[in-house]
Simulated scan of single mutants.
Amino acid sequence: MKISNNQFPNSSKFPITNFQKLVWLLEIGIWKFIGYWKLEFGNWKKQKVFACKSGSLLLMSILILSSIITAASTMGTITLQNLRLGIAVDNGLVALYAAESGVEDALYEIRKNETAAAALLANGTLANNASWARTITTTTMSLGKTVPINGSWEINLYEPDTSLSPLSNPIKSLRLSWAGSGSEWAEVKITPWTTAGSLGAPTTQLFSAASNPATVNLQDATAVLYRIQIKALYSALNNLTVAAYNGLDLSGSPVPLPTQITLLSTGMFQRAKQAVRAIMAHRAPLSDVFGYVLFTEEDLIKP
């Protein structure tokens, strides 16, 4: 590139060499480059600030939306759980009533219609689509009850549904234990009969508080059944417990007593389940009045 002296001021008064011209051109180029760089840097800085502001707004919007969604989800979850709990409570009440229906049905069949326990239905369905299922146990390993003074307790040592059938586990002795004041006596009346239907002579055994626990020996026979009546004399027999054995003098092994029914009824409605358990004597016991004798000079008329 050719450079003339006219491009520089006062070149006529002060002669300028080519080297000085080259230096001045370099300086001018450097200053132009620096100015351009400052301009570009300023524009970049402005764009950067604007981009940062735009990113902050986006991040804040995302955080706010996330908080709203989280709060709404939490409230929805709580509401849904409360709704499910309310439905479960309502269904549980229906299931409870269904379970009670299973128990009431069994009580009616056993006491009113004298239906054998083995012939009772295992399940049933109600009109509201609720259902019940029940299990029935007709034996127990021990019996317990508090007998008040002059009160009595009847225990059947036979299968109430088939009173002449021999027991699968014959009972030959009983163990009686109780708590009392020390002045009480236990009167045990035993009425036997054979599986052939022959009635035996009733016997009575007396036990004082000193003999507690008492041993009641029956007969060493497998074809004899019994009805036992325990009466409290002079004081109550508190927490009286009765257990049976298949040998005399409480020898052998403990055997179940066939005098008590345990009903376990489970009611079901949708996903809810409720259970009710009822324990009762297999047959309604005789009243205590049958332990007494009435004397009268006139005729007794039963209404």
Rank of each mutant, 00 (worst) to 15 (best):
T266G: 09
I78T: 12
M141E: 13
L237I: 03
A278I: 05
P213A: 01
T195E: 03
R111A: 08
G247M: 00
P258K: 02
N217I: 02
V242R: 02
V293K: 14
I261L: 06
A272V: 10
T139Y: 01
R277S: 15
K172W: 02
L22Y: 10
A244H: 05
Q260N: 07
L63N: 06
S253W: 08
I110T: 05
G35N: 07
A71K: 06
A72F: 04
L174K: 03
P256L: 13
A117C: 11
G124Y: 08
A221P: 01
E114W: 08
V188D: 01
W24Y: 09
L264C: 04
W37D: 08
S142V: 07
E104T: 10
A98R: 01
M268R: 13
A186W: 03
V224Y: 00
I171G: 00
S163V: 11
S173R: 01
A201F: 12
Q20P: 02
G76K: 08
S181Q: 10
T296F: 04
V289F: 10
L120Q: 04
L176T: 05
S131M: 10
S56N: 03
Y36M: 15
S181E: 14
N150V: 01
I110E: 02
A98I: 03
L174R: 08
L107G: 01
Q81M: 13
G247V: 01
S142W: 12
D220T: 05
A232I: 04
E100D: 15
S168R: 11
S211D: 11
E159C: 12
W37Y: 12
K21F: 06
